[in-house]
Write a protein that binds this DNA or RNA. Structure first.
Length: 887
DNA sequence: AAGAATGAAAT
DNA sequence: ATTTCATTCTT
């Protein structure tokens, strides 16, 4: 849309002093443009002021506050600077009087500071972008402005955000003690609830009527008050069902209604489509999505062709994965995009793909069919793979999607409250791909169990899914109470059993068919053959020896698998530019050969319990983190020559005897949240010993008693000029880097623009506290489905993380992530969801050894060369930090 | 305490 | 009626 500039000459100018943000440089002219509003808004088009794409950033000076609005439009920066003062006062009480509501009638009332949109709207109206002859209704205007706002580029929005920020500051200065105190109105609430109940009732009755009609049953008699007469009609009213069958049917209908309510019960205006409408291609939606999109739909030829190995359904890889072929270096840089409908998916997904990335690809025989066949847009795919949270889908991969976000996602509202005018694009799912979908399904997509307020319906989590194929299991496990497990009795059951991720019997009514009453003791032991990340893992099978008597099945298994896959998924270090130190982006260590790689970390969440069942649906997080720095000389970083044996041998502190090597792993189980019945369970860290008995085989032994661990990562990492220190905890930062690099690879914006992380480290009573704040714009090159990778989609990204480590290896209190904008996956400019999503993302990104500190060449303006370890030895985890286990 | 709900900001 | 922020409410 055409830029909106924050200029107004008509509003009273009372306070222009402190908020002048604007360059007063230039004006440019461009041909007129037309706004066309969505048909559900005011259906008109009208001419408006010209856009001026040429008035770029470079054409004006940054303002003292760093805000540059010249790009906003032709007149931005002209004589009358669009300072907030002529936007209209940003301070309350200075704008023209408005009608006050009763509550605010009080003279003392201090209005809230306007937010960005309010300012925008105010200005928009003042600007008379919509002539009075066309639309005067405030509500309609709001819609229009809302549309424009959404169409605003991030850059443009930034201006308004800055103004709002200023307004807030000013407000704070002026009313230092102001506190927003919305008054909740119990009456209103009562009414709302009554209305809701009434609506539900009406709907129930309607459905009942329809159903009866459908079945040829006579209409139900009207309810009549019992008159005590004993007349048969009254009796009939009391029991309207003629037959047991009829009654049962009614009850079933009712149950479905309850489920629907749980699923659909959300403040939502009528024009927001339901998920099935919003996502016609919603993969494996159980709520109306087409069957062909269901990866577990074995009617799908790709799935039907699956073979079985070890009880696991193995899909046949499609012969054509988007037409990509050749070495990975090629497809890594392949910028061609196809938007063809993918027959395997049922929806168009950009063919730019990880599909041929041997690391991104699940091993052959992966139970996760879709990962094999799903072309994942490169960028998001990568983001997802190596910590999907990077996509701003809060914690999708390494953490958990915020419940709210997940639900919104499923409700088609992704990131914003229901709006009457804005459906959500189907694209949104595409970018998240299966990760999203899994998230939606596992994380919270299933109907809310009746006992909770959508508080973690299941502990089962799909964190695995995103990063690992194992997540498939989680999927099966994540069946809510009262919900039909669509996969029961399918081959998936096998998978469930085999991998030993057990779901709560309580939350999975079909568990009888899904889960055996007891999981074979050996079921949680696996050999992983070919751990070499470049080599697809071809099979996993129960270890025939060394049963694990009572280890935590799911934890061990998925931990193990995750761990193993973690190599594959994380190792590629897609941030590595192909042109840096190697011919292929994924084959070369990006940093110095001796720099530790951010490779071996796996953060995932699983159900964890000692008996293989999660009896209360909790959300657990296990982080299996080897407490060793990888020794690059053993091959890490050289993906195509990774030698697992050597790697394992190189790990400090492990036994070299025989063929068995111990690998210490900290398994951090964090459980939090409630099970809906107010129970809270705290699982704590456990130390596991990972050992491998022969090359390529990894086992987790029984958990050993908790011991004190001195984490090597507590060493403070000094900051260096222009260098971002990737310190512990930076899974997301790492992903940021991914994004940055992708941008770079695409020849887009300077990496310097990408982000400005601020990290602090401090010690709090012997604990380490790592604050990681990132509040800058990220530029992510993404697929837009039609163009190419050079499309840059900036994503505002605001993350705060706190992490506390007590040095004992557990009790991590990671806190908080805020994502201000989520990439919606469409790649289309301006398509962002932009709601702050609060929530503990539950992921303790204690990447203890990884990412600890290396220079980030991407953040230096001039594209710093990778530095060798010897250049800044103090910045690096030198690998010598053998975790010290104090008995 | 996590997450849902919703008031309030301008007009 | 809109979007965003900041609170309260609910579990």
């Amino acid at each position: 849309m055409a830029p909106i500039r924050p200029i107004s000459t008509s509003s009273p100018i009372k306070n222009r002093s402190s908020l002048s943000l604007i360059s007063s440089r230039r004006r440019s002219i461009a041909p007129p443009r037309h706004y066309t509003f969505a048909p559900n808004v005011t259906p008109i088009s009208y001419p408006t002021e010209p856009a001026s794409p040429s008035s770029s950033v470079s054409s004006s000076s940054p303002q003292p506050d760093g805000i540059n609005i010249s790009h906003l439009g032709p007149n931005a920066g002209e004589d009358i600077p669009p300072s907030p003062s002529n936007v209209g006062s940003v301070l309350p009480g200075q704008s023209k009087p408005r009608r006050r509501t009763n509550r605010k009638d009080s003279v003392d009332h201090i209005p809230r500071p306007p937010n960005a949109f309010m300012l925008f709207r105010q200005n928009f109206v003042h600007q008379k972008h919509v002539p009075g002859s066309i639309e005067t209704n405030d509500n309609s205007l709001s819609k229009i402005v809302g549309n424009c706002w959404r169409a605003l580029s991030v850059k443009d929005k930034k201006v308004w955000n800055a103004l709002a920020e200023r307004a807030k500051e000013e407000h704070k200065r002026k009313y230092p003690h102001y506190r927003f105190q919305p008054k909740h109105d119990p009456e209103k609430k009562k009414k709302r609830q009554a209305a809701k109940l009434a609506a539900e009732k009406a709907e129930r009755e309607r459905l009942m009527r329809e159903e009866r009609e459908r079945q040829g049953l006579p209409p139900m008699p009207e309810d009549q008050p019992f008159d005590g007469s004993g007349a048969s009609s009254s009796a009939r009213t009391l029991d309207p069902y003629d037959t047991e069958q009829e009654r049962e049917h009614a009850m079933a209908t009712r149950r479905q209604q309850v489920r629907n309510r749980n699923f659909l019960g959300h403040r939502r205006s009528s024009s927001v489509p339901l998920p099935s409408e919003a996502y016609p291609g919603y993969p494996y939606s159980n709520f109306g999505g087409p069957a062909h999109a269901d990866p577990f739909n074995f009617a799908n030829p790709a799935i039907a062709n699956a073979s079985l190995t070890n009880g696991i359904a193995i899909p046949t890889l499609p012969s054509n994965l988007g037409g990509l072929s050749g070495p990975t270096s090629q497809w890594m840089n392949n910028t061609s995009v196809s938007e063809e409908q993918n027959p395997q998916l049922g929806f168009a997904a950009p063919m730019q793909s990880q599909a041929q990335h041997p690391l991104a690809l699940p091993r052959a025989g992966s139970p996760v069919l879709n990962l094999n066949t799903n072309p994942i847009p490169r960028n998001s795919g990568f983001g997802n793979f190596s910590g999907m949270s990077s996509m701003g889908l809060p914690g999708l991969g390494s953490g958990t999607m915020g419940m709210r976000a997940a639900r919104q996602l499923q409700l088609g509202q992704l990131g914003r409250r229901a709006s009457s005018t804005q459906p959500v694009l189907q694209h949104q799912l595409n970018s998240g791909l299966f990760n999203f979908n899994f998230a939606a399904q596992n994380g919270s997509g299933f109907p809310q169990p009746p006992y909770g307020q959508f508080n973690q319906p299941f502990g089962n989590d799909f964190g695995n899914v995103g990063q690992n194929e194992v997540g498939f299991d989680g999927f099966v496990g994540a069946v809510a109470e009262g919900f039909t497990n669509p996969f029961a009795n399918s081959a998936n059951d096998q998978t469930q059993r085999t991998t030993g991720i057990a779901a709560s019997p309580r939350s999975a009514p079909n568990s009888a068919s899904v889960y055996p009453s007891s999981i074979p003791p050996n079921a949680n032991w696996y050999d992983i053959e070919a751990v070499d990340p470049m080599t697809p893992i071809t099979s996993i099978h129960p270890q025939t020896s060394a049963p694990a008597p009572h280890s935590t099945i799911s934890a061990n298994n998925s931990g193990l698998l995750n761990h193993a896959f973690s190599f594959g998924n994380d190792s590629p270090s897609p941030s590595i530019p192909p042109n840096e130190a190697g011919s292929s982006a994924i084959q070369t260590s990006p940093k110095s050969a001796s720099a530790p790689q951010s490779s071996v970390n796996s953060t995932f969440m699983i159900n964890n319990s000692d008996n293989g069942y999660v009896e209360h649906s909790h959300q657990h997080q296990n982080q299996h983190q080897p407490q060793q720095s990888l020794n690059p000389s053993a091959g890490m970083g050289m993906r195509d020559s990774f030698d697992f044996t050597a790697f394992m041998s190189s790990l400090p502190g492990q036994s070299q005897a025989g063929t068995t090597h111990n690998h210490n792993v900290i398994n951090q189980d964090q459980s939090q949240s409630s099970d809906g019945s107010h129970d809270s369970y705290g699982h704590h860290g456990q130390l596991y010993t990972t050992s491998h008995t022969h090359p390529g085989s990894v086992m987790l032994a029984q958990p050993t008693p908790l011991r004190r661990v001195e984490l090597p990562c507590v060493a403070e990492v000094p900051q260096q000029d222009g260098i971002v220190q990737h310190t512990a905890n930076n899974n997301i930062t790492d992903n940021t880097r991914l994004m940055a690099s992708t941008t770079e690879n695409s020849g887009c914006a300077s990496p310097a623009d990408v982000y400005t992380p601020v990290q602090t480290q401090s010690y709090v009573e012997g604990h380490q506290k790592v604050d990681s704040h990132q509040t800058e714009l990220q530029q992510v090159s993404t697929l837009d489905g039609t163009a190419n990778l050079s499309t840059v989609v900036p994503v505002s990204y605001d993350q705060q993380q706190q992490q506390h480590m007590d040095g004992i290896g557990y009790n991590y209190g990671n806190d908080y992530s805020t994502y201000n904008a989520l990439y919606d996956g469409s790649g289309a400019s301006g398509l962002y969801v932009s709601e702050q999503i609060h929530g503990h993302n539950n992921m303790n990104q204690v990447n203890v050894n990884q990412n600890i500190s290396y220079d980030d060449p991407w953040t230096t303006p001039a594209r710093a060369q990778p530095r060798s370890a010897t250049t800044n030895p103090e910045q690096r985890w030198d690998g010598s930090g053998t975790p010290i286990f104090v008995q």
